[in-house]
Structure formats: C-alpha cells, structure tokens
C-alpha cells in the first residue's frame, strides 16, 4: 500500500508533469485563461492518462518493441475517440465546451511519456496509480495556472467578480506570452517547495 501511495504521490509534487517534467506546456497555455476550462481539461487528461496507462500495461507483453510508440498512440487515440463519442451522446454541452482541445489530448506529450517510461514496464495496478498521480498533478497545476490568470487577468474567479470594479485587468496575463512568464515563476516556486520537502525528509 505504502509503495502504491508513493507512486501516486510523486506525480503531484516531486515529478509534477508541468512544473517539474515541463511536459505538455502548450495545452497548459492554451486552455488556462479561466479556471473552469483548466479544470475540465485537467480532469479529461486525468481520465485519459489513467485509462491509457492501464491499457498499455495490459498489452505490454504483446507489443513488438519496434512499433511500441505507434501502438501506444493508437491506444491513446482510441481512448480519446471513445471519450469524444460518449460525451457527444450523453453530455453535448461539455463536449461543446471542450471543443478542439479534446482531440488535441491525443498528442499530449505527458500521456505518451508515462506509457513509455512507466506503464510499459510495470504491472496494471502500479500503472494505474502512476496515471492517477500524474493526472492529478497535471490537473492541479492547470487549476493553479488558471486561477492566477483568471484572477489577475480578468478579475474574476470561476466567472464571479473578485476584484473591485475599478480594477483594470492587464491584458498580458490572458495572452499566451503572459501565461509563459507566469509558468516560469510557478516552476521556480515549485522547485523551492520540492526542495523544502526533500530537506525535511532528510
């Protein structure tokens, strides 16, 4: 149990996909201009990465190592397409809100990276925990970035005004460039947090 918890935990802080591994930065910029978008995207990725880790782990002994990457991509694409079809049929509004970003999940580096680095070498339960941990880390990072950008850039949080009416929101944070600068600072902050945790362990 302790071991599985450790696998889960490392994805959130010490190996956070965005702040430490620096993977999937592009979507982190594209959909984080508001908290709700960031959260929806984070949860979608959480689901896809977990499902894909399980499926890759299940088929890991059947796949020829020479074509493993195409096979993993096929697996991710299948999962995303199934999610898309299900959303379309049962939650059309959510489907509309996610728009083209949903299809983009297929090429998220973090999902392929976890399949290659972890799920292809570990059993199903461990891979499941890894996917869950990495997905949670991704979702948490997305929400943090989204919260900063929405509060400072638009003066709202989840659509509600949180700043005084006279607040003139700087455009920069809403634009991708501002998002990049913000992520830079957050990466720095995250490093300090990770160092502190490691020090307190020692």
């Amino acid at each position: 149990m302790k071991e599985l918890w450790d696998i889960y935990k490392k994805g959130i802080i010490l190996e956070n996909p965005i702040f430490v591994l620096a993977l999937s930065l592009c979507p982190a910029l594209a959909v984080t201009s508001s908290v709700i978008n960031a959260l929806t995207m984070g949860l979608t990725v959480l689901f896809v990465i977990t499902a894909n880790n399980v499926s890759v782990s299940l088929i890991r002994n059947l796949v020829n190592p020479k074509v493993r990457v195409p096979v993993y991509i096929v697996s991710i694409a299948t999962i995303v397409t199934v999610v898309q079809l299900l959303l379309q049929a049962y939650f059309p509004l959510l489907y509309k809100a996610l728009g083209i970003y949903l299809a983009l999940v297929v090429v998220f580096a973090i999902i392929l990276a976890r399949a290659e680095v972890f799920a292809s070498k570990n059993n199903v339960i461990r891979s499941f925990c890894d996917g869950l941990g990495m997905g949670s880390g991704f979702a948490i990072a997305m929400v943090i970035i989204g919260a900063f950008r929405e509060i400072i850039g638009s003066g709202t949080f989840l659509g509600f005004n949180v700043m005084p009416a006279s607040y003139e929101a700087p455009l920069l944070l809403i634009l991708p460039a501002g998002g990049f600068i913000l992520i830079g600072y957050l990466v720095g902050g995250w490093r300090m947090l990770a160092q502190y945790i490691e020090k307190s362990k020692a």
Partner: peptide, 12 residues
Amino acid sequence: IASNLAMACFVS
C-alpha cells in the same frame, strides 16, 4: 512488426 501494428489498429 507490421502485423503487430495492424492488429492494434484493428482492435482499436
């Protein structure tokens, strides 16, 4: 190699 990939696509 090819049949392996084809199989994966087929199942998908």
